[in-house]
């Protein structure tokens, strides 16, 4: 079964069979504005929870992507290199950033489920 969790930094991770698919939320893409460039990690990179795993740039500014989980990058979404605007049009679908082999399930407890995340952004 797929489970979707969210970080306070507005990344989501969709978890299936120990693999997490990571991207930024709709709230995040709206706050960023038009995305013109995405820098992805490399397959094989190890990233820590809360560590930098990429950069997303709008016309105006650059924002770092922090990995919501620790693990090894197993796949990246090359489509974002050619069409960064996907992040605006389908952030929680086609515009995933990378897939990561989750190293430590215990970390997931500190992330929010969808209801808690929606409450969190409503208070921002």
């Amino acid at each position: 079964m797929t489970k979707v969790l969210f970080s306070d930094d507005h990344e989501y991770v969709k978890i299936e069979d120990g693999i997490g698919t990571v991207g930024i939320t709709d709230y995040a893409q709206k706050a960023l504005g038009d995305v013109v460039y995405v820098e992805l990690p490399k397959v094989g990179d190890s990233v820590e929870k809360g560590g930098q795993a990429g950069v997303v740039e709008s016309v105006k500014s650059a924002s770092e992507i922090y990995s919501p989980v620790t693990g090894e990058i197993v796949e990246i979404n090359e489509a974002l290199t050619d069409d960064p605007a996907l992040v605006n049009s389908d952030p929680q679908g086609a515009a995933w950033f990378y897939k990561i082999k989750i190293a430590n399930d215990d970390e997931l407890g500190s992330l929010k489920d969808e209801g808690a995340y929606n409450d969190y952004i409503a208070g921002l």
Binding site: G33, D34, V36, S58, V59, K60
Partner: peptide, 13 residues
């Protein structure tokens, strides 16, 4: 105003 709803920097430019 930095940008407007339904437009955004790219479209406004």
């Amino acid at each position: 105003p930095v940008q407007y709803d339904g437009m955004g920097v790219l479209k406004e430019h």
